[in-house]
Amino acid sequence: MDISGNTIFIPGSTSGIGLALALELQARGNTVILGGRRADVLAKIAADHPGIDTVEIDTADPVSIASGARQVLERHPDLNVLVAMAGIMRVEDWHHPAGFLDSAESIITTNVLGPIRLIAAFVEHLRSRPDATIMTVSSGLAFAPLAATPSYNASKAAIHMLSESIRLQLADTGVKVVELVPPAVRTGLLPGQENSEFAMPLDDFVAEVVALIEAQPDAKEIQVERVKFLRHGEARGDYDQVVAMLNTADPHGK
């Protein structure tokens, strides 16, 4: 993925990593369209940041995804990058179904079915573009589990393997598949995470991500230095120690 000259749709980007990344990509010379559920929040973002377009979309709702995709492509037929950013994370207790079932279903709908439906809505268009990218968003927790968030961990592991698989299938097209692998970042993904000393400052994370995209335009995974402890534990042979340290030191994981 080139760092500039793209038209990029980022659903689920009205706060946190999504919004910060969108603004930095706009500053690097890209046309950026943000997607979110709340019209008032989208209107404020558009007013505060001239040049940013916005589209109402709920990535947990297949009808909303189809409608949002139509709007994006009608207004931006040169779209060449989809960033499937939206995601939710919840603490669960799997000792009894009341502690996890509703949460698990919501997480899988948003974090797994959401990206799948988004890709389905855009893949044919992206195949028609000469230089297109699908960016998925997994997590360091796809590779080392935080005990408190089983469904989130599983959803991000699914996104990792989905990314690996569709990259192989789309190798005969002009569509690149890039997986962004965040560590814990200071956002509101979990209560208190925005102030967690264990989480990476948001501005630092986005700056490193953009620098990596610029330096490695053909990268398959975007891994900031801080996530490599989780990402490569099994390959290093210290997976058990990584899991133990994660669950002892970091109550907010990501």
Score class of each variant (00 low, 15 high):
129 R>P: 02
83 V>F: 13
250 D>L: 06
142 A>E: 04
83 V>E: 03
69 A>S: 14
115 P>Y: 11
21 L>V: 05
223 Q>V: 07
45 I>K: 01
204 D>F: 01
59 T>N: 05
120 A>E: 15
194 E>A: 15
83 V>H: 08
135 M>F: 10
108 I>Y: 14
34 L>V: 15
84 A>Q: 06
166 I>M: 12
25 L>Y: 02
73 L>M: 10
231 R>C: 00
159 I>W: 08
131 D>H: 10
225 E>V: 09
154 A>Q: 10
95 H>K: 13
245 M>F: 02
227 V>D: 04
246 L>T: 10
59 T>K: 08
147 A>E: 14
118 L>P: 00
76 H>F: 15
37 R>L: 08
120 A>V: 09
59 T>G: 00
36 G>D: 09
101 L>E: 15
156 K>V: 05
6 N>H: 00
38 R>G: 03
194 E>W: 10
156 K>T: 05
185 V>C: 09
75 R>L: 12
250 D>R: 07
233 G>M: 10
124 E>L: 08
103 S>M: 03
185 V>T: 11
193 Q>Y: 12
168 L>G: 05
5 G>D: 10
117 R>L: 13
110 T>P: 08
200 M>Y: 13
171 A>V: 10
154 A>C: 11
101 L>V: 15
52 I>Q: 03
246 L>P: 04
132 A>M: 01
86 A>S: 14
34 L>R: 04
196 S>D: 13
242 V>D: 10
157 A>S: 14
46 A>L: 04
85 M>C: 10
207 A>S: 11
246 L>G: 07
77 P>C: 02
245 M>H: 13
252 H>L: 13
28 R>Q: 14
100 F>S: 12
83 V>Q: 03
112 V>A: 11
111 N>C: 07
111 N>R: 05
162 L>Y: 14
10 I>T: 00
241 Q>W: 09
223 Q>H: 13
249 A>M: 15
223 Q>Y: 02
116 I>N: 11
127 R>M: 03
231 R>S: 07
35 G>L: 02
133 T>F: 02
226 R>V: 04
23 L>V: 01
184 A>N: 15
13 S>V: 04
223 Q>P: 01
35 G>H: 04
202 L>E: 02
178 V>M: 01
199 A>M: 03
238 D>F: 06
123 V>A: 09
167 R>A: 14
249 A>F: 15
188 G>H: 05
10 I>Y: 02
119 I>G: 01
20 A>I: 07
186 R>C: 01
82 L>R: 07
218 D>R: 02
68 G>W: 05
103 S>L: 12
208 E>G: 06
110 T>S: 07
34 L>T: 10
153 N>D: 11
152 Y>A: 01
207 A>G: 04
6 N>A: 00
96 H>Y: 14
26 Q>T: 08
169 Q>D: 15
4 S>Y: 09
56 E>C: 15
148 A>S: 15
72 V>I: 09
237 G>A: 09
115 P>S: 12
170 L>K: 02
248 T>I: 06
205 F>D: 05
14 T>R: 04
45 I>Y: 04
54 T>G: 03
104 A>M: 14
158 A>V: 06
14 T>H: 06
64 S>M: 06
200 M>E: 13
47 A>G: 13
35 G>V: 07
17 I>D: 02
132 A>G: 08
185 V>K: 12
131 D>M: 02
51 G>I: 01
69 A>Y: 00
43 A>P: 12
60 A>T: 14
74 E>L: 11
213 I>G: 03
222 I>K: 00
100 F>H: 11
197 E>S: 13
